[in-house]
Structures are given as C-alpha cells and as structure tokens.
Design a binder for these strands. Sequence first.
DNA 1: GTCAAGAAGATTGTTGACAATATTACAAAA
DNA 2: TTTTGTAATATTGTCAACAATCTTCTTGAC
Lengths: 256, 256
Amino acid sequence: MVNSRIRADRAGATAAEWAVARGAAPLTQSLPEQIAAQLSERIVTGAYAPGQRIMEQAVAAEFAVSRGPVREALRLLERDGLVTILPRRGAQITNLSSAEVKEIFDIRAVLNGLRDRQLAEDPDRLRLLPALEAEVAKLARFARQPELGEAYVETVFALNRLLTQASRNRRLRMILDSLALQTLRYSKLGLSTPQRRRQSVQHWQKLVKAIRDGDGAAAERVAQQRVLDSRDAAIRQLEAHPAGASAQEGKARRAA
Amino acid sequence: MVNSRIRADRAGATAAEWAVARGAAPLTQSLPEQIAAQLSERIVTGAYAPGQRIMEQAVAAEFAVSRGPVREALRLLERDGLVTILPRRGAQITNLSSAEVKEIFDIRAVLNGLRDRQLAEDPDRLRLLPALEAEVAKLARFARQPELGEAYVETVFALNRLLTQASRNRRLRMILDSLALQTLRYSKLGLSTPQRRRQSVQHWQKLVKAIRDGDGAAAERVAQQRVLDSRDAAIRQLEAHPAGASAQEGKARRAA
DNA sequence: GTCAAGAAGATTGTTGACAATATTACAAAA
DNA sequence: TTTTGTAATATTGTCAACAATCTTCTTGAC
C-alpha cells in the first residue's frame, strides 16, 4: 500500500512499467499521468472491483498529493474508459455489461482488421515477421497443455501488442490500446476451453501467413474472425457465470 | 466576446447547442463540460486557428471562473482530439498533418462500415428510412447547383449524424462523433468539385437502398467506399492548398 | 549584424481552504 | 417491520495563492 515514492523521483526507474502504451508520451511523465498509470494497473489487475467508487481524498492521501492531480488522473482514466465519472458523484470503476463487452469486441474486430490489412500491405513488414513467428510458435507449444496457463494468455496479449505497436496509424494505435485495456479481463474468458485455444492458434498462424504473403484482404478477414470468435466465447462465459470476470461484484465500497 | 452567461444558468436555454453528441449526457451539464462545449464550438468553426495556444488564464477570465474548471475542460477537449496538451506547455489547437487526416479517414471508413452494416441488419431499421430518404432527396437537389453551398455540406453532416445516432453501439457512437468532430473542417474539402458531389449522392442513394433491403454487406461496402473517396478528395485538396482548411495557419498567438 | 547569456515576465502545476451537494444514519410514524 | 423525513457526515466542485518552469526581452560580446 505504500506507493508514495511518486513524489521522490517522477521519472524514476519504474516509469517503464507505467507506460501503458500511450502514444508518443513525453519523456517526463506528469504527476497526473503517473497516478493514472498506477490506478490503471490496479483496475486491470482487478485490485479495484468493477462498480467500486474511487474517492479523491483517499487516492490523494495515499500518493501524498493534493486532490487536484488526482482529479486530472481520473479524467485520464475516464478517457481510457476505465472509470466512469458522474457529476457530483465522483468516479467509479467502469462496470461493463455483457452487451457493452460485445460492443467493444465488435469495434475491435473491424479495427484489428484494418490494422492487420495495412500491416500486410506494408512494404516494410518483413522486419516484424521473425518476432511474430516466434510468438506464434510459443503459442502453439502452450496450446497443447490442457489447462489455460498465464503464459498462454500473456503470449496472446504480447502478439496483439506487437501488431498494434507496429501500426503506422497513431490514432488507430491509441484507440486499439484503449479498447484492449478495457476488455483485458474479458479477453481471458474467450480462451478458457482447449478447443478455443487450438482454433485461436490456427487463426494466428493464418494471420502470419497472410502478412508474409502480403495478402491484405486475407489478413483483414482472419483478424476480424479471430476477434469475433473471441467475442462469442467471452460472451458465452460471461452469461454462464455472470460475475465471471471480476473478483467481487457490484456494491463493493470503501477502499480506504 | 461576452460569453459569461455560463455562471447565471447552467442548464439554460442554449444547452442544446452545446450538447455536441456526448453519449448519454446527464441532464445537468457540469461547468467544465459547458466550457469545453463552447470552446469546441469555436475550434470546429475556425474561430481558433490550428496550432494556436489556449491560455488557461484568458479562458478563465472570459468565462468568469477560476482556472480549475478550465483545466478540466481542456482535458475533455484533449479526449476529443481537438486540443493537444503538452506538459508544462499547456494546450494548443490540434493541427493535423495531411498524413494524420488520412489516418483518421481510414479509421472512419471501417467504423462507418460497421455502423451501416449493423444498421442494415437491424430489424427495427425501417423507422429510420423516411428521414434518411428525405435527407438524400435534399442532397440530390442541392447537388445540381454548380457551387458548393452551405446547405449541401449541412445535409451531408446531418445524414452522418442521423446514422451515427441511430447506432445501437454506444461506444461506436462516441468514437465516430469524436472522429467526425476532428475532421469536420477537412470533410468539406472532399466535396469541392461538382463531380465529387454527384458521386457522393450516388453513394448515399446506394446506401439507403442497401439499408432498405437489409443488405448488410452492401451497406458496409458502400459506406467504406464513400469515406475513402472523401478521404482521397480531401487529401488532394489539402496537398494542393497546404493552408486549405483553416483560416489562419501556424504561428498564430495571443487570442486574449 | 548575429549570437549567447541572463534577467524579467508570463504560464502552467500544485496546494489547502471553503462552498455546494450527495450520502448515510437515525428517529418517528404508519 | 417498513417507510419517510430530517440531521449529520462525507464527498465533490470551485477558488485564490504560491511554486516551478518556460518564454521573451534585453544586454553584451564577437
């Protein structure tokens, strides 16, 4: 709980941890950005439960700053969709209904399609292939295991990061990062059965092939299908176990 | 310049003007939101030139509030991509390079495709058709005139708003609104020749037909093509007249 | 005349206090 | 026991002042 090293060294050694893929960030992160990054970490890892309210005072006290920077940090998190701010009612961790999760996956499907099509049509795409193939190979190994391990999930995320960061379209990178962050915890749900994992690996292999061949249309098709399959699997899990993604649910209050 | 009615009545009569399509806004707009809406208006109408710096003090004085709410307003505008905030250097009106304009149009193409495909596949879509057809008819009339009139441009925007607001996907609506706002001034560029306008009308007619027929694939195809054509025309204009979209350019300073 | 260094001014970043509003706890009545 | 009104508390919204940093202007040397 003692996280008040922030004031000591603002551009400290752990800055890299916090840099959650914000496009072209300045070298020195501002105080609100640092606070936002820390809170962001807690939200996506589930330390804060969906629906939970975040009090400015508590956060300010913990980081040993005044409420001003905390307020701005919350606005940054709102931009990323991680918290929802209501006037006179403060910020609370965004709680996505299964309908909203579906909406986000729908958007991710077409945007991932755009990203991968443009990547496949990029003359300079060969630079990426080795890293891409290495990750997919790892994925294929992990997929043989009967249980869903953390390594598998991590590799899938790494693949997505790799592709998104390679996109030449800055705004696309930002939107995709934001949407990926919002659905992070739900994405795992889509990989829970061995069958889904085998299918996922096949999709990735096809995608790498399409990129290697410079076949933009194929890359787009595969990318879209992959996200849509992931969407359906996640939604199925979500509706089977309504409280699925989060540790606690709903009325959780008072984190201080 | 006397815009300080803000403090008098927060939910006043002009609230509708300010409500620039923010998804499911609470009935009472907060002070930062009101300030952001006013500034947003000025930015998209060109009252503030791209690249121009916005001083917190000046805005605060004009609206008769302290710098706190102004700061939050600027963060809101940053979220919408209308201003760019640099640490210790404040906010300035976002100045899009032609490459960035192209990037945004690329994203709009696939997202408009998604929007219109889902609309065409919506069982309840018939409710929309009359309004849609009326607007397209207006468009066809205006397109016969040799000059690009304000009425034509307005109708195109109205059509887009109509479709976006009809989408059932809230997050898609928000992203599309934001992107449309950012490229508002550039969109006009894509309609400057009579030939382009005739082509545009044809696209809209095809789109309405696809929606009426419930042909999602066709709707998606037409929507994408329409945006891409608009993109190419806008980029051509932009590179022909580099200072094209904005009244003034570049180093403009000191608005107070 | 051009460039560099330093000082003066302007602007953003942060803070703590106060005001306005929302939430909770409690008591009284149905 | 449940509901409703009211008081107490907690929380957000706003402000004005101060600190840190950046910009601009002036001065001087080459």
